[in-house]
Structure formats: structure tokens, C-alpha cells
Nucleic acid binder design. Structure first.
Lengths: 300, 300
DNA sequence: CCCCGCAATGAAGCAGTACTTCACGATCAT
DNA sequence: ATGATCGTGAAGTACTGCTTCATTGCGGGG
């Protein structure tokens, strides 16, 4: 039977991206991690990690084992939590992962409200950008994940997890104030000559923009690559380009210098989800409930 | 974080019913098991096992941890199997648990047919009487469980497991040949003065018989307690009593000396299920398919 | 009633293992 | 080239987990 501690080592290697990094997270030294990994590979008879150039990447077999290893760790944490619960010890820590822009609008309100209702639960928040984070929930490192999906970007599978949609957040076309197209409901194709502001390739909103443009038969020129919508908005305000920005971001942003409208044609939206393990312990559904009402307020 | 090996110790204690028994299964000595259990209890700060005369029973906290521990072990086994599968190593062993009377009719046919189709898979069969066995599947000790339910006996929960009904097996009223009620379609209440043959209290078919009788407003007198339907049938043949026996058993039994008919009133039936983990590895669905066709043949 | 037998545990010893430190090879950027 | 970074081999140490032996506690049989 496999050793759970070795699986933990593998999981940390995967998350850290290097053996040295995993050692740091585990408060071990690098040789210790290297040895444990070597033993794991020896007893399975196959390579799990490709060592090379500035870090370590998992082999296909390693990815399979990572997936299961996260489940093992999750079950171990759940086992301990369950016994503590039987003893009447309420879990006093809830760790939440959220993508950055959720951390600016949705999450702060929810955290504040949750904190008032459950002052004895310590809250921890960490930045997790999609599509990461599902594994962190599976392994129990995160109790709750706030993630999103953009049109054209498939949602990750959620074996053993529960995913609930919190918010449908329309993407609005944002133009500099006084832009000739303002108020004309242009389609993306009508703005093919503009300089676009969006995330780098691989970032969800970029994938969504590219696929939407492809659907209209054009290719948009992304001149400014940033994943931070505040930066995007500042650039638009400066008149250097245009972009698609979620409505909830705009509502919280300082007005002036830009105008927003739904694009003509399809009405793209990002969707925001809460993800947690099945059979979560009590604070998690409570937090989800708070997030749900916070999301309704954002949407209303 | 809890130690998976200690959880394994707890699981074995639960299954063996004693520390000494668990030690035997684990190929350890009793003090080793005792020490591991003590450490587990110390780090959780609560008793998990009630030591007592003639063995050990789990406390409520212990049962909770048992449940989770089985999941942990199941995930560990699944992790190893998954990596082996990536390497192209087909699993060569399939362990099957079945209740005794399934082992007489349904399973042998299925095993034979499966063995012809998959000669490279070694098959292991063990006797498991309901309601045991679900935990063995969860922990991966069994790949497949053939279990049954009788009317009036609630089915166990199947968190993380998949359950498929293979067969609805009517329970026929079996009387000695020449019994005056033969052919009259008597209700159970009409036979309240007979000596009944059934399992002991706690055995599923006894629970079912008692609740069916209660529904008709009578109490039946069970004079001969055996869980083995062959024995029941022999007793009936000897003229000492009557009983309810599944049709599939009767079809395989030697005829003569008894007559069978559906009882008047409700038509009770036992249902036979196959239970396995979600995401089973390939031989399991194959075996289920074989069992399904074997069940149809039994039923036809 | 005493004694035996079984189950569990305490104590001491031993072995394997998992970590550390130290040293070295490989790869890449400066 | 050279320094930095990353990974690994080698040797040493500390710990943990198992074994053996001995003791306690409880229940049943003579």
C-alpha cells in the first residue's frame, strides 16, 4: 500500500513546481524530498516527475497520481475534522481561495459579514487563479474556492467536489469616454481595428475574447496584456485601447473617463462559482450562503 | 495530519472485532496494534475503541473515524491502481464478496463465464453477509460486493459507492408436499400456527418475515433458526415447518418433498445488488455485466 | 472457590527509516 | 568562465514502530 506521506510530498512538488520549493513548504530539506520521491517512483516502477530546467514537472503518471493523492489527503483531513466534530470541537479555521478580482468586490463583503456572524471562525484567504485550485480543494488545503469561467473556456471536472454558481457577471465593452462607437452597440468585429486590452494567452478572459472574436470571423489585436482589470480600466481611461470588463468590476470602479455597454451580438458573461468538497463541515455552507447573498447584491 | 497506517489499524480492529484479531490480519503482534491505537487516540484526544471482555468495540467517535478511514484506504488503493493502469499493467486480481446463497447460484455461473472471457484476471471470492461489506468495498478490500435487501430492511447508505440492482428474486412460500394449504394461496396470517423456519433475529430474512407478519397483524413463531436456505428446505422437506425461500434458490434445489407458491397478499421479494466504488477499474464493470446477464438467466 | 485462559498493556530492546548535513554534478544566466 | 540554482549521492543521527517478555484484569470451568 502506498504511503500517504509520500503522496503528500508529490502533491507539494506539483504545487510548488520544484523539489526545492516543495521542501520549503514541507519544512524539510531538499534531499529529504528527493529521497521520498525516489522511493515513490521506485515502488511504482515509473517516473513521476521530470527533473529539468528550473524546476520539476509531472509526467502523465505523476499527474494521475497527483489527482489521487489530493483525494487521499482530502480524506485524511476530512477524517480528522470529522472526529473533532464528534468531540464538539467546532472547526475554527476556514480557508478560502479566490481569484484576484473576486477578492476586490465579492469576497470582502462576504468575509466581513461572515466574520460578524461567526466571530470564532478564523478566516484565511489566498489568491488562486483558475484553473488552479480545484486540487487544493480536493486535498482539503482550501475549504472553499471562488473561481470563474469565461465563455469558451471549459469548466474543470469536479469529481468529488460540489460547484455552485454564485453570479452571472456580464462582460461589458468598455471604451474611452468620447469614443466614436460609444452608444452604437458595436459588435466585436466592428472594433477589430482597436487596440485591445486583455489577459495574456492562457488567461481565461483572453481565451474567451479570442474565441468570441473567432465566432465573428475576426482576430483582435491584443496590444496590452494584463490580467488586472483595474489596470485595464486605467489604460482605457488613458485612451490607449478598449476591453471587455465584468460589470461587477465596473460598478466598484471609479467612474469617469470611460463608458461601458454590452457588446452587440452575443452577450458574453463570466460566471462565478463556489467550489467545495462534498460533505463539507458546517462553516462552509454558511460561507456559501453569505457569498450567495453578497452575489445577489452585486448583481442587483 | 493523521497517519494512514494508524487508520488502517483502526479499520482492521473494527473488522476483526478485537485487537488481537487485527494484529493477526496485519501480521503484527498485539502490542504493536495496541500501541498504534493508543497513539491515534492520544493525538485525537478521545477514546476510539472500548476495550472489553472478548474483544473491542468502537466508540461513536471510532465509528466516525472508521467510516473515514475506509475512504482513506480506498483512495490509497485506487491511487496505486491508477498508476499501475497508466503503466499498462492491467489489474490481475478482482476480489468479490457475496452472501452465501448468491455464492451458490448466481456467482458461480458468473465467475465461470468471466474467467473464460478474462483468463488473466485472478478471481477471489469471500463470504460477506449483509449489512457488512459496504465498508470493505469503500476501503478497496473488495472490488465488488454482491449483497441483497429484503423488504422491511433499509438499504445502507452508499456514499462514494455505486449500487446496481441485478435481480428481483420473489420469495415463495414453501410447504411440505401434501400440506393442506398447498395450492390455496394462503396469506402469512393463515399460517400463523405453523412452525416457521427462518434466520435468527437480526438476519435480513427474519426481519423481513417479522415485518410482513406484523403488517398482517400476526406474530409468526420461528422454531428453526437457520440462515442457510438449503437447510431450511431440508427441514421443510422433513415436514417440520414452512418458510419463505427465494425463487432462485428453489430453482437450483433438488425437487421433491416440497411445494412452492407466492404467498397471498403482498408478494415479497429480495433484491440482489452489485456494489462497487465509483470509477472502478475495467474488470469490475465487466464482471457486473456478466452478473447482469447471469441474473437475467436466473430470472428467466 | 480457585485457577486457568484470553485479551490488552507496560517495559525494554532492536531495526529500519526518514531526516539532516555535507559534498558534488548539471544547467543556465551573467 | 563563474556564480547561482536545482537536484542527487553519501554518511550520520534520531526517531518511530515492531518484537519479545512480563504483568494486569476479567470471565468461565473444574
Amino acid at each position: 500500500m502506498l504511503d500517504a506521506n509520500r503522496l503528500r510530498v508529490l502533491v507539494e512538488i506539483a504545487h510548488a513546481g520544484s523539489i526545492t520549493g516543495a521542501a520549503e513548504r514541507l519544512s524539510f530539506t531538499a534531499p529529504a524530498v528527493s529521497q521520498q520521491l525516489a522511493k515513490l517512483e521506485r515502488e511504482l516502477g515509473c517516473a513521476l516527475v521530470e527533473r529539468g530546467r528550473g524546476g520539476a514537472r509531472l509526467t502523465p503518471a505523476g499527474r494521475v497520481l497527483l489527482d489521487h493523492g489530493e483525494r487521499v489527503l482530502g480524506e485524511l483531513r476530512a477524517a480528522e475534522a470529522a472526529v473533532r466534530a464528534v468531540q464538539g470541537e467546532a472547526p475554527r479555521r476556514l480557508s478560502l481561495g479566490a481569484f484576484a478580482s473576486a477578492g476586490k468586490v465579492l469576497v470582502p463583503r462576504a468575509l466581513a459579514e461572515f466574520g460578524r456572524a461567526h466571530p470564532h471562525v478564523r478566516l484565511a484567504l489566498s489568491d488562486v487563479e483558475p484553473p488552479d485550485g480545484y486540487g487544493l480543494v480536493t486535498s482539503g488545503e482550501l475549504d472553499l474556492l471562488i473561481t470563474h469561467s469565461y465563455p469558451g473556456v471549459p469548466l474543470p471536472a469536479t469529481t468529488g467536489l460540489h460547484r455552485e454558481r454564485l453570479l452571472v457577471d456580464p462582460l461589458l465593452l468598455v471604451l474611452p469616454e468620447g469614443h466614436p462607437a460609444a452608444g452604437t452597440r458595436p459588435r466585436l468585429a466592428d472594433l477589430a481595428d482597436e487596440e485591445w486590452i486583455c489577459g495574456a494567452p492562457g488567461i481565461s478572459n483572453r481565451t474567451a475574447l479570442d474565441s468570441a472574436a473567432r465566432a465573428e470571423g475576426v482576430r483582435l489585436d491584443v496590444a496590452y496584456e494584463t490580467r488586472d482589470y483595474e489596470v485595464s480600466l486605467a489604460l482605457i481611461r488613458a485612451g490607449v485601447g478598449v476591453g471587455l470588463i465584468p460589470r461587477s468590476i465596473l460598478r466598484a470602479a471609479s467612474p469617469g473617463g470611460w463608458t461601458a455597454q454590452p457588446p452587440g451580438g452575443d452577450r458574453p458573461a463570466r460566471e462565478i462559482y463556489a467550489v467545495h468538497r462534498r460533505r463539507p463541515y458546517p462553516p462552509v455552507p454558511a460561507m456559501v450562503a453569505v457569498l450567495r447573498t453578497a452575489a445577489e447584491r452585486v448583481n442587483g
